[in-house]
């Protein structure tokens, strides 16, 4: 049995990047190397991890979701208003929002529209709805949600525990179940899937609904951490989630995705910002350096592919 070294290095690239960042952060800021330290460092990563998984589900079928940031914001705004004041209606709105995501998937499939355009349009819809739900900053996250994200499980900070659980569940669902195979296959060769008698409509709707579910979880946890919301809360999650998913080994071509990689990628994106802050880098440079880290990792991956190609 031969080991595919290229595949191995490729798969461990996000993990290596994460380890390198952690080592650098611990060296710069030793007090981060504690339960409380890791908690502070990572607790904002939980919603980013969910948003990245949402993006990954859409990438699975070869689409790109430019609306996830607006959607997470909308969910957070619903959480601090309806979910707090009238939980039943709040839950109904969130369920309807997931159905809305599935409907977007259906629209893209049926009308054969470019997902990037539809989701970009949807980002304005979600933003508009967020402003309608919560016209000025405020609201109050339900106490149970705040308590939930402030849980202090013994021995391991919540953010790390959550990342492990989410990563494993995502891996099981998409990489190990028989349904996950069909969902990934749809990204690889939609015609083969149709010829095997599967409905691309249902597959796309399923993946978009999963993305919607992850988006709802991202909005809920984000509102739990911030305890209130505003209509600009998570707009930057769109690009963060794309960067995290791609960093984690997903590809724009569809079907090539990795839930564990996406979780690691989200953590890398979160930590990269902290790392740069610890370096006391001028904030004007931070976005650029974050982009440079992303390009570096992708270039490394491309290099691996090239080396393998010459073999």
């Amino acid at each position: 049995m031969t080991i595919d070294w290229r595949e191995l290095v490729r798969a461990s690239l996000p993990a290596l990047a994460l380890t390198a960042l952690l080592v650098a952060i611990f060296w710069l800021q030793p007090r981060a190397m504690s339960y409380q330290g890791l908690n502070l460092l990572l607790n904002l990563s939980i919603p980013i991890v969910f948003a990245t998984l949402a993006q990954m589900f859409v990438l699975t079928v070869g689409d790109l979701d430019l609306g996830i940031g607006g959607f997470v914001t909308f969910v957070a705004c619903v959480t601090v208003t309806w979910l707090a004041d009238a939980p039943l209606i709040g839950v109904l709105i969130l369920v309807a929002a997931i159905a809305g995501y599935a409907a977007v998937g259906a629209l893209i499939e049926l009308r054969n529209l470019p997902a990037i355009v539809v989701t970009l349009g949807m980002s304005f819809v979600w933003f508009g709805l967020a402003v309608i739900v919560l016209p000025s900053p405020g609201g109050r996250t339900p106490e149970w949600l705040i308590a939930a994200v402030r849980l202090r499980p013994p021995g391991i900070p919540l953010a790390i525990l959550a990342a492990i659980v989410i990563g494993l569940l995502g891996h099981l669902l998409l990489m190990r179940t028989s349904m996950g195979v069909v969902l990934r296959g749809a990204g690889g060769n939609p015609r083969a899937i149709t010829r095997a008698g599967w409905s691309m409509l249902r597959i796309r709707m399923t993946l978009y609904a999963l993305a919607g579910l992850m988006g709802v979880l991202a909005g809920l946890t984000l509102a739990g951490i911030t305890t209130s919301a505003d209509a600009n809360l998570a707009l930057r999650y769109t690009l963060l989630s794309i960067a995290g998913a791609i960093l984690g080994g997903s590809q724009f071509t569809g079907g090539r995705v990795s839930p564990i990689g996406a979780v690691l990628g989200a953590l890398v994106m979160t930590l990269a910002a902290s790392f740069l802050a610890f370096l006391r880098l001028n904030p004007d440079w931070q976005i650029g350096v974050q982009g440079a880290i992303l390009i570096l990792v992708l270039a490394l991956r491309a290099l691996l592919d090239r080396v393998a190609g010459e073999r």
Binding site: A32, L41, L222, N232, L235, R236, Y237, S274
Partner: peptide
Amino acid sequence: QATEQAAQIQNLILQ
């Protein structure tokens, strides 16, 4: 953005 500033505050605590 608020999420960005929240992360900044947490980093300041850590520092």
